[in-house]
Amino acid sequence: MTRHWNSLAFAGFAVLSLTSPAIGAGGPTLQQVKAKGFVQCGVSDGLQGFSNPDDAGNWSGIDVDVCRALAAAIFGDTNAVRFTPMTAKERFTGLQHGEVDLLSRNTTITMQRDVALNLEFTGVTYYDGQGFIVKKESGVTSANDLGGATVCTQTGTTTELNVADFFRVRGLEYKIVAFDKEAQAVEAYEQGRCDTYTTDQSGLFAIRLKLANPDAHLILPEIISKEPLGPAVRQGDDNWEDIVRWTLYAMVNAEELGVSSSNIDEMLKSENPEIRRLLGVEGSFGESLGLSNDWAVNIIRRVGNYGEIFDRNVGAGSPLKIERGYNKLWKEGGLQYAPPIR
């Protein structure tokens, strides 16, 4: 009997210690995440290279790797993450209502979303831009030839507005057919309901692979908008925002400093103070986030640096084979730039 009471008391204590907020353990979101033991991550309902489930239900993609990196930073375990697929229409409401801890869902940063929807964007995982895909047989080679075209797209996205602006500015006629789900929009394009399908150019590369005959389609060279895609969190929890922000920065800094998943053990012995701070050998940056000091080590060892996740998911090492382009490091002429860890 006493034994039972003891174990019950122990269980109660264990629960208490898990749920009671320890001082300096981070903001409410981090505490909730630690208590439930995983990160709940809102992803797309299937976009190759960004967030896509395989036959066994395992998610992969650059957006998925951001979630996994976050799980690695918090728990040291890339599997301590669960994914919620969300349509473009559902995503913000889902985040606002706490169904997910963050969105990592090829979401464009815009002022409206930042300011009026009370979200916080924590960085850019991928610099994208909106493009068009057409059938080669149509003879169209430039977006400027699209006057009078019927355009398929997905509702509830910035693309709907960009396309309106694009044609309005040029004084061209167009017709828009806006579907709820991307799969249906693409199906309608392939069947010939529309002359062109428009979405972020990276998405077009992914979609082209899925079409019956990828070579019969052409992605037009023009980019008609700026689409910086990045993770978003709810406004009001600065600590959680910092954790998501610096998870991404840690990966970009790691690439810049030449730290990768393959050389991390040697790098731990490095004398370079920048690397020592990144890897928590010097300073206590992890602790100030409410994490352990080896947070970045866990990210790089288990997920990799930014270059690795880009290459693996969308770049040369993936079926998409998208050029680094704007997503090169700033030192190489791209836009990826992370503030220093110091």
Binding site: A88, F92, Q112, R113, G156, A178
Partner: peptide
């Protein structure tokens, strides 16, 4: 309830 809701966030 689709496009306008998403653009304005006035759910």
């Amino acid at each position: 309830a689709g496009t306008a809701l998403n653009q304005t966030g006035k759910a």
